[in-house]
Nucleic acid binder design. Structure first.
Lengths: 125, 125
DNA sequence: GATTAATGCAACCTGTAGGTTGCTTTTTGC
DNA sequence: GCAAAAAGCAACCTACAGGTTGCATTAATC
């Protein structure tokens, strides 16, 4: 087994740790969005509407309970919020976590970009 | 069961379908990033370095084979590319799919934003 | 107040994701 | 050429994600 990774650090260690620190939370949201059914639900809610489970079940081949479970998963990741209204519970998108992973991706991309520009600078030298 | 969703379309139907159309591919990438171990691997590769499996296994409590499997999943989602170099295979980040989901999120967010602004306009009327 | 709609709850089933162990194959370095 | 390093392959295990069915509960409606 090799002692240490013989790879030169091409970036500030700060950024790496900053990214790593946010990975855990980000993974939860990614996982929530990583199912086609759930992502379809998010897509359907992203116009800001609040819809009941029955409404959200229409058009899917799945059972109402299946949809319900998926909604609870999304709620667990805070991608969605629910509120009971009479006999139905209404779901609405919560944009915060999605905004969070957007900025996470931004962070990752920026690292990649600086890596690329450094590489380019190195080649041109 | 209710006939049709009694929800007014708050947005152009175009955007909804545009989002829906991209959901399937996006879900694959989200799923790939939805595991903490895999996201950590991506974080480690996002500086543009190419590293071997052995290198990427260091620091993890998992087996080399486990890491290897995760890398293949990432490769399946094209988040990462591999290349055999002698007796080791090197992995490097491929930013394209991540860029894709970034723009997907952009799309979703924009819908949410227009929904919000319309709501605001409605209230102020 | 009886009926029907909308959910919730719980048990259950099945496939597969995530992980391990053990062995083989391919390079490398001496 | 031999020993060790790096990775691939394959079988296996286990938990749980994703789905179903059936029944209980709550609320609207007439």
């Amino acid at each position: 087994m090799s002692m240490q990774a013989p790879v030169k650090p091409l970036m500030a260690a700060n950024a790496q740790t900053r990214i790593a620190r946010r990975s855990a939370e980000a993974a939860t949201v990614f996982a929530a969005l990583g199912d086609p059914t759930r992502l379809a639900l998010v897509a359907r809610l992203c116009d800001g509407s609040r819809r009941s489970i029955a409404q959200l079940s229409e058009g899917h081949s799945l059972t109402r309970q299946a949809i319900s479970k998926h909604l609870r998963v999304l709620e667990g990741a805070r991608v969605v919020r629910s509120e009971r209204a009479g006999r139905e519970s209404l779901f609405v998108l919560n944009p915060q976590p999605i905004e969070d992973i957007r900025s996470y991706i931004e962070l990752v991309s920026s690292q990649w970009d600086t890596a690329l520009s450094r590489l380019k600078a190195l080649v041109e030298k």
